[in-house]
Design a binder for these strands. Sequence first.
DNA 1: TGCGCTTGGTTACATCTGAAACTTTCTTGC
DNA 2: GCAAGAAAGTTTCAGATGTAACCAAGCGCA
Lengths: 169, 169
Amino acid sequence: MSSRPFILSPTPASLGAQHRLRLDDYLPYRLSVAANAVSQLIARAYVDRFGLTVPQWRLMAVLGEDSPLTQQALCGRTVMDKVTVMRAARGLLQRRLLRRQPNSADGRSHRLSLTVTGERMYAEVAPLALKYEAMLVAGIEPLEVRRFEQWLRRLQQAAVALSDAGATR
Amino acid sequence: MSSRPFILSPTPASLGAQHRLRLDDYLPYRLSVAANAVSQLIARAYVDRFGLTVPQWRLMAVLGEDSPLTQQALCGRTVMDKVTVMRAARGLLQRRLLRRQPNSADGRSHRLSLTVTGERMYAEVAPLALKYEAMLVAGIEPLEVRRFEQWLRRLQQAAVALSDAGATR
DNA sequence: TGCGCTTGGTTACATCTGAAACTTTCTTGC
DNA sequence: GCAAGAAAGTTTCAGATGTAACCAAGCGCA
């Protein structure tokens, strides 16, 4: 690639950024593009092998480690819209991968959990997911990966905070 | 948050990953969620202040630093589909932010560049973008930020490589 | 020159997505 | 208890997005 001199030179104020906008070095852009590439890769794999969409995959991932849960709870765990969760759940229900039982504590919601078939699929889905993750970070020290994840959390937090601040302002 | 012991303990094989799938610690998920949060924040800001969609914003960002360019070139620079570029360009053309001139070298394509109005908007858009970036990474050393960006590039590259490998296999 | 192939760009269509309105059930304050 | 408001879930609708088909202009090779 082209040389980028003085990028790390002392910046004028407290803003640790460039003064000129170069899309290619723009963090939100880089983040978006990277996320897209990774998402596409994994989405394709899951749709091909299991016929699962990303939202459906997320539901299975969560319910595989903790169930039963209501749709509401799933929204929180997967950071997805309630409509998205609803549709994903409907798909899985139709395929008998999910079971929906009445919630004695609250007549509005239901308790969702994997069926035996769902568990069986989960048993294939989870290792594949881990395999993809491993391939993506191949050759990188685990400690580095952890640091990166921390970064992502931090960034997300910052974005949400700014978003809330903007909304109420 | 909850404690996560032994995460950094020696892993069995060369795979630097967990053995159990926990969505919350799953890198592709974290990446997607973080990217979403950041994208939403910025998208909202741009639609509110300038009436620009993300694709439109990207076109302006690229054309502001380098023009004229064909749509084809813009696809490469923004990592967007040609249809997406086409629609974004159409929107900007209608608002007279973009100019489209014939390309003497190739009758199929056109040379796109910002109009004076477009330049004027760019002059507002770019600093705001940098401001958002600065706010997101506030309190983090610039060197760290660079490292993170490198990470993102690397991850993207890995994803694309795996995707290509999968497609041809 | 001309026939086939490629490429830039556009259109059509099918899908996905989220905001908003709506229904039902629960909670709260009186 | 019972109205009023909140919350879980569903449906509807409009906008965004991408794939595939399509058109027109260039390229290449005989």
